[in-house]
């Protein structure tokens, strides 16, 4: 029992990270109908940015309070990653708007390859162990044993929850959110009605990048190690989460993320850790094949 609860906690932690990345996928797919292949690598870059900023702050700028350091890293990381995401959209996707439909996908794959190798070249191919932070654990007795929650996990839950609420408010209540939903429905009509479509798309990428950067910070502090190749697999899993939740749906992306995190953790805990990625990829295939509209998405009817 306590083993199960422990896995549940671990799974939800991992799931929060996936959920944050998944939002980027789901929003971009919703608005321009493409799988932003480079998003996983934006996430990876953000993990590196967080790592470097953290070392810079704690070792060189003499910030002793770990809380303050993390806050600065969080905010600066969001800004810097959003910049990356914005630039990627401007360079690799915007010039292709309205062109041959495969072109943005190929361009995105090219961008992903570029980002991966860019980090490999600038930071080296080796795994980077991050300074270990927030190691205190809370032990909750349960049954015959106990369940532990580390400060890191607690932090991940809290930050994810706050950000999601804030983000949800943006999309539901603000003009930007309305513009975004309008562009999702019909981009040309939205433009005719005076919505600045380009700006809306840019902002979507900016928000997606900012959320991915939070995920990157979480990932870095949770696993304590980052590598240039860490973008692909979490990226695909987060995309799986977005699809599972119903692509285009924000709550769906979060629920999908949590589910994927749970499934992955439970699979590793009860079956075989070797095949955990096979499980994730299989879920992706099964969901897309049997319920392509996901849990909360709109069904797509073939028009004749």
């Amino acid at each position: 029992m306590e083993y199960f609860v422990q896995q549940l906690i671990n799974g939800l932690t991992l799931g929060s990270i996936y959920g944050l990345i998944a939002i980027g996928y789901t929003m971009v797919f919703g608005i321009i109908g493409m799988v932003n292949f480079a998003h996983g690598d934006v996430f990876m870059i953000s993990a590196f940015i967080a790592l470097i900023l953290l070392i810079l702050l704690t070792q060189f700028l003499g910030v002793t309070s770990i809380g303050l350091a993390l806050l600065i890293v969080l905010v600066a990381g969001m800004f810097l990653t959003a910049l990356w995401s914005w630039v990627i959209e401007r360079i690799a996707y915007r010039p292709l708007a309205g062109s041959f439909r495969l072109a943005p996908l190929i361009s995105a794959i090219g961008m992903a390859i570029f980002l991966l190798n860019f980090v490999q070249v600038t930071q080296g191919p080796r795994n980077k162990a991050s300074p270990s932070i927030l190691n205190n654990v809370m032990t909750i007795p349960m049954g015959n044993g106990s369940v532990t929650i580390s400060e890191r996990q607690a932090l991940i839950f809290i930050v994810t929850a706050i950000l999601l609420l804030a983000f949800w408010a943006i999309v539901q209540k603000t003009k930007l959110g309305r513009a975004q939903r309008a562009c999702e429905q019909d981009r040309r009509m939205a433009a005719l009605l005076g919505i600045n479509v380009d700006r809306t798309i840019s902002l979507t990428f900016v928000i997606g990048g900012a959320l991915a950067s939070v995920a990157g910070l979480m990932f870095m502090s949770y696993y304590g190690v980052v590598s240039f190749s860490d973008g692909f697999t979490p990226g695909v899993k987060a995309f799986t989460a977005a699809v599972l939740g119903g692509i285009g749906s924000l709550p769906g992306a979060v629920i999908g993320g949590l589910l994927i995190g749970l499934i992955e953790t439970m699979w590793s805990a009860y079956f075989s850790i070797d095949y955990k990625d096979v499980a994730a990829f299989s879920i992706l295939a099964i969901v897309l094949i049997f319920m392509p509209s996901g849990l909360l998405g709109r069904p797509d009817v073939e028009k004749v």
Binding site: I91, A92, P95, L96, S99, F100, L102, A103, P104, I106, S107, I109, G110, M111, A112, I113, F114, L115, L116, N117, F118, Q120, V121
Partner: peptide
Amino acid sequence: QYRMLIFGLAMVLMMIWRP
């Protein structure tokens, strides 16, 4: 090590130039 870096960038540029 710059091979794939250039390859990725070239893919993007090719798509912009001749989609």
